[in-house]
Design a protein around this nucleic acid. Sequence first.
DNA 1: TATTGTTATACTCTATAACTATA
DNA 2: TATAGTTATAGAGTATAACAATA
Lengths: 150, 150
Amino acid sequence: MPGTADQTASHDPDRELLDTLVQTTFVVMGILNRLSARHDLSLTQLRMLGILRDREPKMAELADHLGLERSTVTGLVDRAAQRGLLQRQPSPDDLRAAHVTLTEQGRTLAARGANEMADDAGFLIDALTTSQRTQLLQLLRRVCAAAPPG
Amino acid sequence: MPGTADQTASHDPDRELLDTLVQTTFVVMGILNRLSARHDLSLTQLRMLGILRDREPKMAELADHLGLERSTVTGLVDRAAQRGLLQRQPSPDDLRAAHVTLTEQGRTLAARGANEMADDAGFLIDALTTSQRTQLLQLLRRVCAAAPPG
DNA sequence: TATTGTTATACTCTATAACTATA
DNA sequence: TATAGTTATAGAGTATAACAATA
């Protein structure tokens, strides 16, 4: 922070909190990236599997969840389907639409990812006491609640 | 009896905390992605500018900070240099090595990114009281402290 | 010999624009 | 006409392997 006309974290406590939140984001992203790579997945693919664990959205809905363009999702789904992780199911009420659903293999991999995340990221909260973990959970829930529905 | 391949967060509080941490990560990543895109930057490029605000690392060091391969960073630096955001400076002690340094333009953009982050992500902590913000900062610092040096 | 960085190559990710089939 | 999804295209991000120059 020294050296520059720093608008950085300096003395604004909110700024400092947001900086730390961003730093935390990169830490978790790194862990998720390595975890994904271990299974020959991108972070986006892993995230997609996570989303599909409790949803069977149409392509456009999936694109919304991911915050990506429909054409991008076409490719993501193509590659995942080619690996046998998911399928396109025709929609009963709309001949144009397709629902994306996990295969057994996809469901297994998604569950495995969740388990490995617990293993790989567990050390992050090792230094926290039980009550600190509870506190952090409450606070992060409030933060997520502020975000637009994903 | 979790015979029901119990999906999501179930009842393990640590699992639930990590899930929420991941969810928070995707929320912040989305904000950072949109912020970057607004300036025709990728998230990685924005992050690189952030790193270079208080460092002038060699290529290999920058690669370590980013958690990417040296060859990948060659391309990232090439494109950023072409836009006038940074430069390669020859190292005084090693003819092979090059230090990466921000240009004035790069420094300005990095500062602007930090400011806009405060604007764009501020709403995430709007619902928190002052003491909750302090609490969250302390907790996240502890989480980041557990991570390997970046 | 080992290290620093680049090049060559091959993917995946991503967006925009144009297209098709259905609504 | 409008919507769901794909295709075509182009560029960025990423890794692996091979290479040049320096240490």
